[in-house]
Nucleic acid binder design. Sequence first.
DNA 1: AAAAGAATGCACTGGTGAGTGCAGTTTATA
DNA 2: TATAAACTGCACTCACCAGTGCATTCTTTT
Lengths: 205, 205
Amino acid sequence: MTGTRGRIDKRQAILEAAFTVFARDGYRAASVDTVAATAGVAKHTIYNHFGDKQSLFRAAVAALADDALARNLAAIETLRPERDPVEALTEVGLKLAKCYCDEKSWAVRRLLQAELGSMPELQDIVRERATDKVNDALADRLARLALAGHLRLSDPAVAAEQFGALLTAPFDARSRLGTRKIPFNELAEVTQNAVQTFLRAFGVR
Amino acid sequence: MTGTRGRIDKRQAILEAAFTVFARDGYRAASVDTVAATAGVAKHTIYNHFGDKQSLFRAAVAALADDALARNLAAIETLRPERDPVEALTEVGLKLAKCYCDEKSWAVRRLLQAELGSMPELQDIVRERATDKVNDALADRLARLALAGHLRLSDPAVAAEQFGALLTAPFDARSRLGTRKIPFNELAEVTQNAVQTFLRAFGVR
DNA sequence: AAAAGAATGCACTGGTGAGTGCAGTTTATA
DNA sequence: TATAAACTGCACTCACCAGTGCATTCTTTT
């Protein structure tokens, strides 16, 4: 009666393979046989663990969303009110930009958007696990910066929304929706631009 | 030898039906039979006009991209340097936001992103026809505003990029990727926020 | 009116993929 | 060591769908 119900290593291997294959081929074009082959596992094992293709997909996406949340929150932690706001915002911005431009992040967003029609719950899975929490955490930190006298803002939620917008939206075009890898200096440039504009609008100067 | 080669009305009906079905079901899940039925046309007719499923898809997406471009450019026309910049930016912002939140726009972006892997050319089709031109046009107008002394900016391209970011990115979250319809007052609110922040950063005050 | 071109309906091929059934093997637990 | 549970390999069903072939029926042009 130990915790090895379902042989965790296999389950993990399946989840990783599933994400790889789904990300490469898309949900519909990916076959369960391919996932099985990639994971080095019999097709039956997959059906034992996850029941059907949809559930496997949901599980894979959820796992990735958890990952992404952790990395984003870790980045936001860096934003402490006792630091120099320019420096701190730039560092956090760069970290968040890196998260956003991660290959897996692109894949999750792509899969999510593609299958929205057939599996609306996906939206909530990802939003509850990641997006919302990241925005809240960022808003909290910005509020503390404002309280410390480093920013002048009326609504921290809006400020977080806009900081995020300035930081991520430019990459949609620049990386051609994740097709092209963004070189580091461009990452830094966009971050720089975002922080500069954000501080021009909300900084105390 | 008149211009009716291919019976335009049928071709048009097919394109519209194709887009409807693709947008609803996604590229792979949509069957050519369904498109034919929706268009009220025999399957053969589709193959006569477009050759195969992929070409039909490309044609449908391209047609929609042309539409979107026209609407976006029309919106940007409104941005004339002799007008009051706050008013002008707000009006243009609202129009652009409306374009971005249009149901068809969401569908195009969804389909595009979903099929990027299997049809990379799509990216270029849409970018050449719409995105790039819109950005350029916006940058041009912002440059003229700056020249007229209404804005203080070093790089109009970056300014356009950021105005676009502030204007569109918030809707990704707020409309849940196009799932939820944005009520007008929220559209106005986001636009308001965007213009306000943009002018705080780049306005002459 | 005749001929050419489009469009239609229907049946058919060939391919693919989700999910199941089964018989046998490995691994862990008691 | 016995026994249950998990895993494997393979074959099989069933459904769906892109694309084609053909005989027939409009529609347009000359």
